[in-house]
């Protein structure tokens, strides 16, 4: 069974192979709604909006404190390229999407599911196998023509996230906040053990410009595929093993 809904300002698709219990889909989408209600900076009554309007730290939810710790750790791990502070306001959306997909995937696993995927706004956690007992295939969208794909990956129990194209999400900042992030990179796709890792490092490495793919290469457990302005792709040493023949 498969369902797509708009949540967190983007289409979210869940496909489950090893169950027909619709409640699992409902619970997953309810979880994304809950995440949106807490972390959306566009909702004036969300917890993050209340924090940005002065809610003291001792009244933050335990989950919010944990997410903020993850954001801080990610900032340290990316030499400041991942930064949720912008003009005095906090916006953890660059981490929350991947984190939420991974949390939702873990919840489905706790229900005994092994074969499913969750995709939100182009970021994917693919678990087990699809209906024909093959690993899920994930296409990397062509940033120059969104109706095309330029690479097909075979993904088994991994996360795949893509950052980029013409309009950068506002969660991508440079460390000193004084320069544009564009350095000729159209998109950067990152594969990791889970989508939380893939998303946060794709976000940060994209902000690094062409240096980002070198950062992905250096970091254990990550592989990447960067497409530049000229349609030239640069990819990491272990990326090839994910390419679908």
């Amino acid at each position: 069974m498969k369902q797509t809904k708009i949540s967190m300002g983007m289409p979210i698709t869940v496909e489950i192979i090893d169950s027909t219990d619709k409640q699992l889909l409902n619970d997953t989408f309810a979880f994304f709604r809950k995440v949106d209600n807490r972390y959306s900076t566009y909702k004036p009554d969300s917890e993050i909006s209340r924090i940005n309007n002065g809610l003291p730290r001792d009244r933050w939810s335990a989950e919010m404190k944990k997410v903020m710790q993850l954001c801080e750790a990610t900032k340290q791990e990316t030499n400041g390229y991942f930064d949720i502070k912008h003009q005095g306001k906090l916006d953890p959306s660059g981490l929350v999407k991947g984190w939420a997909i991974w949390e939702a995937a873990k919840q489905l696993r706790q229900h005994g599911l092994q074969n499913f995927y969750i995709e939100a706004g182009g970021d994917v956690q693919a678990m087990g196998l699809h209906a024909h007992n093959q690993p899920w295939t994930v296409g990397i969208r062509n940033p120059f023509d969104t109706s095309q794909i330029v690479k097909t990956l075979r993904i088994h129990n991994k996360g795949v996230a893509t950052s980029g194209t013409y309009i950068r999400g506002q969660h991508i900042y440079t460390p000193n906040h004084s320069q544009a992030v564009s350095q000729g990179v159209q998109s950067l796709t990152v594969i990791a053990d889970n989508i939380y890792e893939a998303d946060r490092f794709a976000t940060a490495a994209f902000a690094m410009g062409k240096e980002g793919i070198a950062f992905i290469e250096q970091r254990t457990g990550l592989e990447g595929y960067m497409i530049d302005d000229l349609g030239l792709a640069t990819f990491t040493s272990g990326f090839k093993e994910y390419i679908h023949a």
């Binding site: 300002g9 983007m10 698709t13 496909e15 959306s93 995927y117 995709e119 706004g121 182009g122 970021d123 994917v124 693919a126 699809h130 899920w136 295939t137 994930v138 296409g139 990397i140 969208r141 062509n142 940033p143 023509d145 969104t146 109706s147 095309q148 794909i149 330029v150 690479k151 097909t152 990956l153 993904i155 795949v160 996230a161 893509t162 950052s163 980029g164 194209t165 309009i167 950068r168 999400g169 506002q170 998109s187 796709t189 793919i213 070198a214 290469e217 497409i227 349609g231 030239l232 792709a233 640069t234 990819f235 990491t236 040493s237």
Partner: peptide, 24 residues
């Protein structure tokens, strides 16, 4: 350690598509 290639459009028969979204 990095390699390069020109991107090339492929058959769109995939289960899932990964790409940046316009959430700005």
């Amino acid at each position: 350690y990095l390699e390069q290639e020109a991107i090339k459009a492929q058959s769109a028969h995939v289960d899932i598509i990964s790409g940046a979204t316009y959430t700005s």
